[in-house]
């Protein structure tokens, strides 16, 4: 694995304003702190996992990176280029070039394919937009892509509603691959699929990574699939990173109390399992008024001892590329 960095995110902040409607103008009545000051870097060719429960800001992070929802502040570097500048300059050619390098696979394959287009139209749309494939080779390339994701030629003229969830996700992957991207952001790509189909899609993603060296940013709430596919994992809680580590390191010796609880909360498919489960009290607080200090402190058993109500923990390196943001953990 090369240590070359393909994507670097620095102090990313994404706030969504809560507005009330006036006649012409909107009034801001509050702010949802979706992502608060997040920094990380993704190495070329690796799968970087972003894990957390619903509302923790993992999807907002991904959308900000792709400028689907421009970030409130912070910088995003892709291959050393600050991409915010490209988006703000409105230079159409530069923008297209950037779009070709980063692609997105959505969570819900039922909503992410245009129901009025055939599979061929869907997969060839990138060719129309980017013109990177000569027109006479469009169909060859289409069949190559279909084969690559495990579909047949005769599927090309069909419509999305004729496919199962797993096959639709394959179509989405083929569309993303059509521009030959360097980074693929996969937002819960298997969450809406059946258990028996999940492994197919995950293996397909792994196989494609081996073939083309694509870097993945893999977003999920499901730690099982994360363990299976990711090289490094970051755990998010209420808009902040609480822990980043190599996958095996994170699963074998989680340091943050939230990561520990998250890992133990997963039901084990073993009736005789006697592993004690840490059941967290309460629920994730609202991101409109996140708790002061450590955002996890209202649910944490160590909070009193370390005065986490006031001390905001910073991400610190504890060795072996393992970073934790917890007052309990000291270097």
């Amino acid at each position: 694995m090369s240590a070359e960095i393909i994507l670097e995110v620095k102090n990313l902040v994404k706030h969504y304003p809560l507005t009330s409607r006036g006649i012409f103008l909107k009034k801001e009545v509050g702010v949802v702190h979706a992502v608060d000051n997040v920094s990380f870097s993704v190495r070329k060719g690796e799968t970087f996992g972003l894990v957390g429960e619903s509302g923790c800001g993992k999807t907002s992070t991904a959308r900000a990176i792709l400028y689907l929802d421009p970030p409130t502040s912070g910088e995003i570097y892709f291959e050393g280029q600050e991409i915010g500048r490209i988006f703000k300059s409105k230079n159409h050619q530069d923008l297209l070039k950037l779009r070709r390098k980063m692609q997105y696979v959505f969570q819900n394959p039922y909503a992410s394919l245009d129901p009025r287009m055939t599979v061929a139209d869907i997969i060839m749309e990138p060719f129309v937009i980017h013109k990177h494939v000569p027109k006479e080779k469009w169909h060859n390339r289409l069949y190559e892509l279909l084969e690559l994701v495990g579909l047949e030629e005769y599927h090309a003229e069909r419509y999305p509603h004729e496919f199962s969830g797993g096959q639709r996700q394959r179509i989405c992957i083929a569309r993303a691959l059509a521009v030959e991207p360097k980074l693929l952001i996969a937002d819960e790509p298997v969450a809406s699929l059946d258990v028996s189909v999940r492994a197919q899609i995950l293996n397909l993603l792994q196989e494609l990574q081996q073939k083309f060296g694509i870097t993945y940013l893999y977003i999920s709430h499901d730690l099982s699939t994360v363990r299976h596919i990711c090289h490094r994992v970051a755990v998010m809680y209420l808009g902040k990173f609480v822990e980043i580590a190599e996958t095996s390191e994170l699963f074998n010796s989680p340091l943050h109390p939230y990561t520990q609880a998250l890992l133990s909360a997963i039901p084990v498919p073993d009736p005789e399992n006697k592993r004690s489960r840490i059941v967290l009290p309460g629920e994730v607080p609202s991101p409109i008024n996140p708790p002061k200090g450590c955002r996890f402190h209202p649910r944490c058993i160590y909070a009193k001892k370390h005065n986490c109500v006031e001390n905001v923990p910073e991400l610190v390196d504890v060795g072996k590329g393992h970073w934790v943001a917890c007052n309990k953990v000291k270097r």
């Binding site: 199962s164 059946d194 028996s196 492994a199 363990r227 997963i266 084990v268 498919p269």
Partner: peptide, 24 residues
């Protein structure tokens, strides 16, 4: 059997979950 083997799991050391071919 396939259903059990298809689940990749945090507590399970198995690296490669089994693939059930095809769809429902």
């Amino acid at each position: 059997r396939a259903l059990l083997e298809a689940v990749s799991h945090v507590t399970v050391k198995r690296v490669q979950p089994k693939i059930i071919p095809g769809a429902i």
